[in-house]
């Protein structure tokens, strides 16, 4: 088991920023999903040992997050969210230095820095000062310093922030390669759902410090009801109202297309029944493939409704 958390609670003053009943990650790649301020970064910092939880227990790679922080940090790599570097160094010196800080002998760290910089696509620019790098290159160098000591687990905090579409895809491909081909476990924190869907097998949805859902992405998608795209003629407002009574989520666009998130157990028959009861004609009905965004919107919506 890569991560096991039980009843972890983190408070800043009186505000509870993290309150996880239980979270486990067996390995591979997991996405931490949640809106801004959900507690994703706090969770990563708790795993790193930067923040000591007020209560609860946790283990990372079998090591206690309260007492074995140094051992944990040796075995994991962390790519912070914001721009950071060691001033006055070129890329190869910076990455080698990160390796030395992790405990690698200087010679090994330097050799590995060259390899890693080539791997992340900065081989040609490795003698340039990091301060002169573009945003995309800075993201790559942060990934390189997280990988240099060959960690068993890497924590990536919003790795695609500020990247153009091409750069974003390249970086996500790299991360996917790390998790699938290089046998390095990945935890990717992001509020960008396509990023998580692209890279990860598992996902955990966090909102207001609480874990709302977790599991493989395929399971999460299966767990929710079907989604339909529909256009009707007649009393569309009444039709939507009827569906909402059944507990379905409905969203009508400006051009009159209704996106319907069915409750688990209900299918197209219920939809047709609602149309019949409201005397509306269904002119267009297409079942949609469930996306992670649908799952996310549903659990966040349910969470907000319960508060």
């Amino acid at each position: 088991m890569v991560i096991e958390l039980e009843g972890i609670k983190v408070q800043f003053g009186k505000q509870i920023v993290l309150d996880l009943v239980g979270l486990s990650f067996e390995g591979g790649s997991m996405g931490l999903l949640g809106p801004n301020g959900a507690g994703k970064s706090t969770l990563l910092k708790t795993l790193l040992g930067f923040i000591t939880p007020d209560s609860g227990d946790g283990r990372v790679l079998g090591l206690d997050i309260r007492t074995q922080q140094m051992e944990i940090r040796r075995k994991i790599g962390y790519m912070p969210e914001n721009d950071c570097h060691i001033p006055g160094m070129n890329a190869v010196a910076f990455v080698a230095y990160a390796g030395e800080l992790a405990g690698m002998p200087p010679k090994d760290a330097m050799q590995r820095a060259h390899e890693i910089l080539f791997y992340v696509g900065l081989g040609e620019a490795r003698y340039r000062n990091v301060e002169t790098y573009s945003t995309g290159m800075k993201q790559r160098i942060k990934l390189a310093q997280a990988l240099v000591h060959d960690p068993q687990l890497i924590l990536l905090d919003e790795p695609t922030n500020g990247l153009d579409p091409k750069g974003r895809i390249e970086l996500l491909e790299l991360i996917r390669d790390i998790s699938t081909s290089k046998n390095v476990n990945v935890i990717l924190s992001s509020h960008l759902l396509p990023d998580v869907e692209w890279v990860c097998r598992d996902a955990a949805v966090i909102h207001k410090g609480k874990l709302l859902a977790s599991g493989t992405i395929a399971e999460l998608k299966r767990g929710t009801g079907a989604v339909f795209e529909c256009r009707v003629k007649g009393d569309s407002e009444g039709f939507i109202e009827q569906l909402k009574v059944l507990g379905c989520g409905c969203n009508m666009s400006d051009d009159g297309i209704i996106r319907i998130q069915m409750v688990e157990g209900l299918g197209s028959r219920s939809l047709l029944q609602a149309a019949f009861e409201r005397h509306v004609q269904i002119r267009h009905l297409v079942p949609l493939k469930q996306s992670l965004e649908d799952v996310f919107m549903q659990v966040i919506g349910e969470s907000n409704a319960n508060l």
Partner: peptide, 22 residues
């Protein structure tokens, strides 16, 4: 003068403290 202030400016503490460095 720049030993720590430059690290603060470049957010380098995150790099240092994410390694097994106390």
């Amino acid at each position: 003068a720049g030993l720590i202030s430059n690290d603060l400016k470049a957010n380098a503490l995150q790099i240092y403290l994410s390694k097994p460095i106390t």
